[in-house]
Simulated assay, not measured.
Amino acid sequence: MSTTEVESLAKLRRLLADGSSVRDLRLQDLDLTQVETELLGIDDFTGVVVLGGRLGDTLHRHLRLHGALVFPADPDVPFDAWRSHLYRPRELYAGLREHGYDATPDARSYRWSLDPNQDVYSSLLRAIHDDSISDALGEFLDGRTVVGVMGGHAVQRGSADYAMAAQLGHEVASHGMVVATGGGPGAMEAANLGALCTDATLLEPALTALAEVPSFRPDITAWARVAFEVRERVTADTGAPRSLGIPTWFYGHEPPNAFGNRMAKFFSNALREDVLLRVCNGGIVVLPGAAGTVQEIFQVATALYYAAADRGVLPPLVLVGDKYWRAEMPVWGVLQALAADRPMADAIHLVGDVGAACSTIERIANSQRPTSGPREGGIAP
């Protein structure tokens, strides 16, 4: 059986106008009220699966009576489990300006995830949502070079470390690569900001404005509002994507930042971490951080350690800060010990500043540009 995914009304309208059979279509996250008349005129929906979206009772009955399997959206949960596209930051923060962060879909979804009375149906909705996001992420990044930037969530706006992460994000994105982070505050926010900022002259004023609210604690609303004000001045959300966040509601007490072109937000942190590392086909740059950052380093190191000898050039793992990674958080020695006499040895790098990190990433990217989507070239083996 051959199936066709339809994730836009434009594509569905083309199929209907051509008189093509609708058998075995997968209609995901569509407003079918816009084509109800056309669909009511069809009496064979064999193999058709309707995943979420909008449809009236009349069309719902008609589809089911003529062979379709319908999985309706649940209006009682604060998210769309069947969504076919990634989030824009303003979707997650809808209502922020008028009602504050607690009223936003992001905050409501986090509270929903903490409900102790959830059952197997709730687990199913979370799993469907995360699979839908994973699928949308693959489509969004197909054929693009993606560089991950990791760093501490506690880095405050206005600090030298924050400015360094922003500069790194800007330089990487300016070489035509998508900057992917964990999508949260701190160094992640800074790297996403730098990547989104297409004009280098706007970066310094943006950093100055953001420093007025250094942290999301204790007031997420104020922290997010100034971020969206800065975003409006930095760039329009047009052109090729430069900035991507991959956050999780598992750490819902840490809000997502406002500076991704798109946000791939997951309920499962384990899935989110796997996806984040897997899409980074251009390598990963690691700024100073604590436990979470160290965990990510060794997740990458494990994949590099077990990479097949004939795989070719491995995506680089670049640590920034010689003194920090040798003495203050001495993981460099462990990485070197693991890499001895293995292909991994050529993939790990310790550099002194973000300029050297960018040069390393760009040099390796030029030596082996990917020809397919990020699922085939990332860090994971």
Rank of each mutant, 00 (worst) to 15 (best):
G245S: 02
S268K: 04
T145R: 15
R14G: 06
V320G: 00
A240F: 05
F250M: 12
R90V: 12
A211Y: 10
V149E: 02
G19N: 05
V178Q: 04
D43F: 13
P374C: 14
R311E: 13
A240N: 04
D31H: 06
A240L: 09
Y93N: 14
L16N: 03
S359K: 14
A227D: 04
A357T: 12
P330S: 14
H170M: 13
E212R: 14
A180P: 08
S132W: 09
T238D: 15
K11Y: 00
I42K: 09
S2C: 00
D346Q: 15
G194N: 08
S113W: 05
L202W: 06
L40G: 15
D44E: 06
S122L: 00
P116A: 04
L168H: 08
L304P: 07
L350R: 05
N257V: 03
A309K: 13
R88P: 05
G95F: 02
T33K: 11
D57S: 14
T360N: 06
A380Y: 01
D119L: 06
D310Y: 01
G52Y: 02
V146E: 01
P255C: 13
Y93C: 11
R262S: 11
G260F: 05
A327K: 13
L317W: 03
A258D: 07
A81Q: 02
T104Q: 03
R23D: 07
A308M: 01
N281Q: 05
A10T: 12
L287W: 06
Y306S: 01
T181M: 05
N366R: 15
Y305T: 10
P316F: 09
A290I: 03
G182V: 01
N117Y: 11
E189K: 10
L203A: 02
E38W: 00
M344C: 06
V49Q: 14
H85E: 13
F298I: 09
L317A: 07
A173V: 07
L137A: 05
T293Q: 10
R342G: 02
I348S: 09
L114D: 01
R90N: 06
A222C: 00
A166K: 10
V331P: 08
R369F: 01
I284K: 00
V155T: 15
A224I: 02
G158C: 07
A347P: 02
G47H: 11
A200V: 15
E328L: 15
S372F: 06
G100R: 05
P72F: 03
W249F: 13
L202G: 06
P343A: 10
M329D: 03
V285K: 03
G373D: 06
S8R: 12
F298D: 12
V77R: 08
L40D: 03
V230E: 08
A81G: 01
V286D: 11
A190Q: 09
V226I: 15
F79R: 07
I348G: 06
A264N: 08
